[in-house]
Amino acid sequence: MITRVIIPGLPLFWQGFLVTLELCAIGFFGGIVLGAVLTLLGFVSRPTRWIATAIAEFFRATPVYVGLVWVAYVWPDLFGWPDTVWQAACAALVLQTGAYLSETFRGGFLAIARGQREAAAALGLRPATIVVQILTPQVLLNSIPSLINQMVIVFKSSTVVSVIGVQDLLYHANSIINRYYEPLEVLTFVASIYILTITLISMAARKVEARLRERLS
């Protein structure tokens, strides 16, 4: 079965795997940026805090699938964007990831003793300098385990994008199943790819975590 199904389908598997990796990278790093913005808005003023909290709570309470189809099929009528299913998938993953990471970053800021900010202000440091040079490294250090976990979650969540037609790994797996009618072999192979990739991501992230802790501590 491997020679009849898996080997002929390797080009499609590879193509879908690359799409999955690209989608996950956009979702994760875009989510970091969005999470940081939502976190900062939460400390600016009461109105911005309400807006940031509403956005974060909405997407944290919404299943990935629901958020995906909502962005893909409702947003074009409301906002005229996204124009493609690829853009919809990226936006949905960024929003979902950013919502969770905003809570992570907010907890990281609140965990820092208020005395540090007061001492820095007493030394005459500007607010921007305090945030960038004193608070942000500590927040990053405290958030590393959650970031690693969120990276894995994004990779797993990306499997739903095939339902709107994004040609990721699972999309091509389903197309191969429909061609050869051998779901056991195909899905087992795809599951092995996901397991191996997540394991490698976790191992690499742990090494990065160790280096960051050594540098930032």
Rank of each mutant, 00 (worst) to 15 (best):
G108K: 06
V166P: 01
V74C: 06
L170S: 04
I153N: 15
A89L: 05
P137T: 09
L93R: 00
D168P: 02
F79L: 15
G80E: 10
N174D: 14
L140W: 14
L169F: 09
N149R: 03
P76N: 14
A88K: 01
I134S: 02
A111C: 06
I134C: 03
Y73F: 15
G80Y: 12
A92W: 03
A191R: 00
G80F: 13
Y100D: 06
D168V: 01
V139E: 06
A99M: 05
I144C: 03
V186A: 04
T104D: 01
S162F: 12
V139T: 11
V139S: 06
L123R: 02
E185M: 08
E182D: 10
Q167G: 01
W75A: 15
A88L: 11
N142I: 04
A113N: 13
T84L: 08
V85R: 15
V74E: 05
Y100T: 10
A191I: 08
W75R: 03
L125V: 01
A89R: 04
I130H: 01
L78A: 14
F79A: 14
F109E: 01
L140P: 02
R117L: 14
L95F: 15
S158Q: 08
L184Q: 08
S162T: 11
F109N: 01
F109G: 04
A111K: 02
L95I: 14
I153Y: 10
W86G: 02
A72F: 12
R117F: 11
V190N: 03
S157I: 04
A92F: 02
G98I: 02
V186D: 04
V161A: 11
S143W: 01
W81D: 06
F189A: 11
I177M: 09
V154F: 05
W75F: 15
N149H: 04
L110W: 03
P76R: 11
Q138T: 05
G124L: 02
R106E: 00
L170D: 07
L147M: 12
S102I: 10
